[in-house]
Nucleic acid binder design. Structure first.
Length: 204
DNA sequence: CTCCCGATAT
DNA sequence: ATATCAGGAG
């Protein structure tokens, strides 16, 4: 399947190597930002994280943060009760089991409350430079339309895509697919008229 | 499979 | 009005 490599090459040309719309300045901040990004735009997350991290700068602060205060700070991202609870529980777990550090393995990351494969791979790739291919709603949709993957299950799609690409391209690929899915191949409209991938797409 | 849930584009 | 948004837990 040469098409996957061609798609990756064009996405890499279109976007810078580690292009990510979420703002963060540490692995912990990225972890929290990705938890907040569930069913929410990155712009909305970026609007709340500065005040969140100003109020609770350290992992120990987040681990002991009053729930109602946390809920208020993340309210506009939706699912705010779950997210507040999850962030606090996750940070408490980081303190209890990992000396307050964000782990560098998929196994450990996924063991944290509120952290699934998508969040774990995002942190591995973008905070640590460890190969990780995050499959979110955009990657799932765009890869399916391009004809790179079959099926609808995220874990399945992750495996298929990882098989098609070298490890050192996994993170850039998923970052690029996500931005591309936001800008061009959106859920509402594939945008084929201005798509730079029409010639390698089975759905165009 | 359902629930969590506000903000935005269409 | 409604579909969708960098998901994960029970």
């Amino acid at each position: 399947m040469e098409r996957a490599l061609e798609v990756e090459r064009r996405l890499a040309h279109r976007y810078s190597e580690a292009s990510l719309a979420l703002q963060f300045s540490s692995p912990l901040q990225l972890l929290v930002a990705v938890i907040l990004s569930a069913q929410c735009t990155d712009a909305r997350v970026n609007a709340v994280t500065p005040s969140l991290f100003a109020r609770f700068p350290r992992v120990t602060d987040l681990a002991r943060a009053p729930l109602d205060e946390l809920e208020e700070l993340v309210h506009s991202t939706g699912f705010y009760r779950n997210k507040a609870k999850t962030i606090r529980a996750c940070c408490a777990d980081l303190v209890a089991r990992f000396a307050g550090d964000v782990p560098r393995s998929l196994h450990d990351l996924v063991s944290l409350p509120g952290v699934g494969r998508k969040t774990a791979n995002m942190v591995l790739g973008n905070a640590y430079g460890i190969p990780g291919l995050a499959v979110d709603t955009h990657v799932k949709r765009v890869a399916g339309r391009l004809g790179l993957t079959e099926g609808d299950e995220a874990g399945d799609i992750e495996r298929q895509l990882c098989d098609l690409l070298p490890e050192n391209r996994w993170t850039a690929f998923s970052n690029g697919m996500i931005l591309f899915g936001r800008e061009v191949c959106t859920s509402r409209s594939p945008g084929c008229s201005t798509c730079p991938l029409v010639d390698v797409c089975v759905s165009a």
